[in-house]
Amino acid sequence: TLFEALYDYEARTEDDLSFHKGEKFQILNSSEGDWWEVRSLTTGETGYIPSPYLAPV
């Protein structure tokens, strides 16, 4: 399942991933609570992002 960003987000740590509203992601790991490890389909980068900022496509 692909997810889309509902809002912009600016990374706060080196493990976070900055992204823009509308960017699409592949979920790599969603078992860590509200922070999911994802791969951006736009940039190819991986990192953690807050799951409340995402919605299924």
Rank of each mutant, 00 (worst) to 15 (best):
E14G: 13
A11C: 06
E23Y: 05
Q26S: 08
G44M: 07
S40P: 02
A55R: 13
T43L: 01
S31A: 13
G44V: 01
T1W: 13
L28E: 02
V38W: 00
P50N: 10
S31E: 12
P56K: 05
N29V: 07
L54H: 03
V38L: 01
D8S: 08
E32F: 12
D16M: 13
T1A: 12
G47L: 06
G47K: 03
A11W: 03
L41G: 02
Y53S: 08
G44N: 08
R12D: 09
E14M: 08
T46S: 09
E37I: 11
W36N: 01
D16A: 15
W35C: 08
R39K: 14
V57G: 05
D34I: 12
L6E: 03
S40H: 08
E23I: 02
P56V: 09
T46P: 01
K24F: 11
K24V: 14
T42W: 12
Q26R: 07
K21Y: 05
L41E: 09
F19S: 02
T43M: 01
Y53F: 12
T43P: 00
E14P: 13
A5D: 00
W36C: 04
I27E: 00
Q26T: 10
K24I: 15
L6N: 04
Y9K: 03
L54A: 04
T46G: 02
S30E: 08
W36V: 07
P52I: 15
A55C: 07
F3N: 00
K24Y: 13
Y9F: 08
G44R: 03
A55W: 10
W35G: 04
L41W: 07
T1S: 11
R39Y: 11
R39C: 07
D15H: 15
E23H: 07
I27Y: 08
A11N: 05
T43Q: 02
F19N: 00
L2T: 09
I27K: 08
E4L: 08
G22P: 00
G22K: 02
T1M: 14
G44K: 04
R12H: 12
H20F: 13
D15K: 15
S18A: 07
E32Q: 14
A11K: 09
D8G: 06
Y7K: 09
E10I: 14
I49G: 04
A5H: 00
V57S: 10
Y48M: 13
P52N: 15
Y53I: 07
E32I: 12
D8Q: 03
W35K: 09
S31W: 09
T13G: 15
I49M: 04
D8T: 07
D16C: 12
D34G: 11
E45M: 15
L28T: 04
T46F: 06
D34T: 10
S18D: 04
E10N: 10
V38A: 09
I27V: 14
K24W: 12
Y7M: 13
K21M: 08
L2E: 06
E10T: 14
E37C: 10
I49Y: 00
L54I: 10
L41R: 01
A11Y: 04
G33K: 12
S30P: 07
F19G: 01
E37M: 12
T1R: 10
L28Y: 03
I49A: 14
V38T: 00
D16F: 13
W36I: 07
A5V: 03
F25T: 00
L41A: 06
T1L: 13
E37F: 15
Q26V: 15
V57E: 07
P56W: 06
T1Q: 14
G33S: 13
A55T: 13
T13M: 11
